[in-house]
Computed example of a mutant assay.
Amino acid sequence: MSVLACETTEILTFTGYEGGKVEIRCPYESRYEEQNKYLCRGECPVLNKDIPVESGSPAKDRRFSLTDDRTTRIFTVTITDLRTEDQGKYWCSVRTGLGTYDKYTEINLEIKPVLACETTEILTFTGYEGGKVEIRCPYESGYEEQNKYLCRGECPVLNKDIPVESGSPAKDRRFSLTDDRTTHIFTVTITDLRTEDQGKHWCGVRTGLGTYDKYTEINLEIKPVLASETTEILTFTGYEGGKVEIRCPYESGYEEQNKYLCRGECSVLNKDIPVESGSPAKDRRFSLTDDRTTHIFTVTITDLRTEDQGKYWCGVRTGRGKLDKYTEINLEIKPGKSEYSV
């Protein structure tokens, strides 16, 4: 099925925050790898197009940039320092070079205000026991130089439980904080996740104005690492011609063991294993990396095909004369179009 063009009635929606950034990912059809790609703003008529950025040329608006991944056939437009006036209609566009109309995919860009202490919206992040999670905290323009921190629990005015704050060593070494002052988003990374990490947190910004700090409420969910006895199935989605990353959490204690992806029913004998750590992949479209710190190994599949759809298993060699550890995976392959949100 072809990438959405100008006659489509489907619209892709992306969401960003004021002062932050958004990445608009635009799939396109095979055979247009060498053609120029661009983002068109507004109604995008045949003449007098408003094109803030196009591949091969300097961006007319320096907040816009464009990269083209010709392997996955997806080009990405990044917009930084988002403003309310950026909201509205755009078009992912491909020069056809065939004397015909360019190819278009309609985009709707929503810009939300940065969440502050008075918000009723709660951001939810999910991690796995033994793994890591990245909590992304947007903040308003004007607070770039102020300290940022994560506050745990109810976070009263006095006696705050602050495991990490910018400018100071973390009180809990599992926590780290980085601040991107260009996008106005600071990120708190928590490693070696534990069940007791679950619950309410607050992204905090020191105002330095003698007033209350700015807060965004966070709900952190910690899930157990899925093993062979689980009834939960993880679902991953990819697009024809693109790639997908299957992230497989595993229990502590298996850092040194081999990991693999098993295709189909994965019987005890005659396993169909396209890729395993420590060995060359049987299918070159498959690759595997193992992050032993977070206890998550990742299988990347490129050049996705419809026949790749179906059941898989994340497998861990136990090396203990027992059955390997498994997590069931369902992989869905969709036609060459995509819906992404930030």
Rank of each mutant, 00 (worst) to 15 (best):
S2R: 05
F175Y: 13
G253E: 06
C40I: 06
N147P: 02
T13E: 11
K112P: 08
G321H: 03
K171L: 14
S341R: 12
Q257A: 11
I135T: 02
E140M: 08
A59Y: 07
E134Y: 02
T8Y: 13
K200R: 08
T178W: 01
V77N: 08
T100I: 11
T124K: 08
A59Q: 09
P52C: 13
E165L: 12
L4D: 10
E7R: 15
T235E: 11
V114W: 06
C248D: 07
Q35V: 14
T72D: 08
E332I: 02
T76H: 02
V225I: 07
E196R: 03
C151V: 07
Y326D: 03
V188S: 01
D161L: 10
T72V: 10
E165F: 06
I79T: 00
S93H: 09
V244P: 01
T9S: 14
S168F: 12
I24T: 10
P45V: 09
L261R: 03
P224T: 08
E245S: 05
L39K: 06
R173M: 13
V46A: 11
D81L: 13
L269A: 03
E154G: 04
G88H: 15
R63N: 14
Y254L: 07
E106V: 06
C248I: 12
C266W: 00
T191E: 15
R174A: 14
R73Y: 10
E256R: 10
Y17R: 15
R174F: 07
D272Y: 06
G319T: 01
E229P: 07
P138K: 00
L220F: 06
I301N: 02
A227E: 00
L323P: 05
G241A: 09
R41G: 13
K60T: 07
L150E: 10
Y101M: 15
D283L: 11
K271R: 11
L331W: 00
V205Q: 00
N147E: 06
E43A: 09
F125E: 04
I122L: 10
K160N: 01
E276C: 08
R31T: 15
T71V: 14
E23V: 09
D179C: 02
Y101I: 14
T195D: 14
D61E: 13
G167W: 01
K311M: 13
D197W: 08
S55Q: 11
K282A: 07
L123D: 09
Q257V: 09
G167K: 01
C203A: 05
K322Y: 10
C314H: 00
C266F: 00
G199Y: 08
A5D: 15
R152H: 10
H184W: 08
G42F: 07
I185E: 14
S252Y: 05
K60L: 14
Y260N: 11
E7I: 15
E145Q: 05
L177Q: 13
T237R: 07
I218W: 08
P58H: 02
P280R: 03
G88R: 12
I79R: 05
L4G: 12
T327G: 05
T67K: 09
S30A: 15
S287R: 06
N108M: 12
G142K: 00
I122V: 13
G131R: 02
G253V: 08
E328H: 00
T187D: 07
D283M: 05
T230G: 12
R263T: 04
D308K: 04
E221T: 13
E328W: 04
A59L: 08
V157N: 02
G253P: 07
